[in-house]
């Protein structure tokens, strides 16, 4: 397949088998720079598996993942993150006994400009760069309105704020591509509205490409420009939100009759 300059991620024929079970089969997806696309499908359709394959937590059985014109298959998850792909998790995975600030500072660790020796010696280089690193982390927290909670222990925060910390932490990885796994799960309608604005905002401000898994139809339909629908590990439809809403296969497989009004 041709890869143009503006293509940031290109997945072709991605397949993952767990034993005899084909969790993902012949999955294709192309993201261009600046896209804000959605990936939807019923429970067990393989959406999170796709995320785990992209981020290197699983190794694909077959297929290729091209990120910025080079294959990332077989790289360690941390190497993939350092190349510029960050993610959040379906069930929040914060470093729960650490402070909010430390959560974000840890994500910034690969970008820290001092090594272990500077840290042990506590020299000038350490002090300057540690201060810079902390300020950078606080900047990310400020975007999410969390600057006053920076010394709180992460697990003590309410659910919605934990989600925000998780997204802030993912942004601190300084990614080009952000993968959000059900960011609105467990949020109340007001928090969902805030979240949608937030996603729009970070998309524009950080010049990000975002791929989003979501169950809440109004989130997907509200913010995604292009949607891919999966069922039983395969793509069953692609298109704009409007097309997807009218696609019969999607309605049958995923939304079911009578659920359409949710959008």
């Amino acid at each position: 397949m041709m890869t143009s300059i503006s293509t940031i991620l290109e997945i072709s024929d991605l397949t993952k088998f767990f034993g005899g079970l084909g969790a993902v089969r012949n999955f294709d997806l192309t993201l261009r720079k600046g896209d804000l696309n959605g990936l939807i499908g019923p429970n067990g359709a393989g959406k999170t598996t796709v995320f785990n394959l992209i981020t290197g937590i699983y190794e694909p059985t077959a297929g290729d993942i091209i990120f910025n014109n080079s294959s990332i298959v077989g790289l360690e998850p941390f190497e993939i993150t350092r190349l510029g792909i960050a993610r959040t998790f379906q069930n929040i995975r914060l470093f729960s006994n650490l402070t909010v600030l430390d959560n974000v500072r840890i994500a910034y660790h690969p970008h820290s400009k001092y090594g272990m020796a500077d840290g042990i010696l506590h020299n000038r280089k350490f002090e300057v760069n540690e201060k810079e690193l902390t300020e950078k982390a606080q900047e990310f927290l400020a975007i999410f309105g969390l600057e006053n909670l920076q010394n709180e222990i992460a697990k003590n925060l309410p659910y919605g704020q934990q989600r925000r910390v998780e997204i802030a932490r993912a942004l601190a990885c300084e990614p080009q591509l952000l993968l959000l796994d059900e960011p609105a799960a467990g949020m109340n309608p007001r928090e969902i509205l805030e979240l949608m604005d937030l996603i729009h905002f970070i998309h524009d401000r950080f010049d990000l490409t975002i791929l989003l898994i979501e169950h809440q139809m109004r989130v997907v339909m509200g913010i995604c420009k292009f949607i891919t629908v999966m069922d039983f590990g395969q793509v069953i439809a692609r298109g704009t939100p409007k097309e997807i809403q009218e696609n019969e296969r999607v309605i049958e497989a995923y939304l079911g009759k009578g659920a359409v009004h949710a959008a």
């Binding site: 937590i57 360690e76 998850p77 941390f78 993150t81 960050a86 995975r93 840890i106 994500a107 660790h109």
Partner: peptide, 9 residues
């Protein structure tokens, strides 16, 4: 898992 996803070796 989260540490890996945050780019920690």
């Amino acid at each position: 898992v989260a540490a890996k996803a945050m780019g920690i070796d």
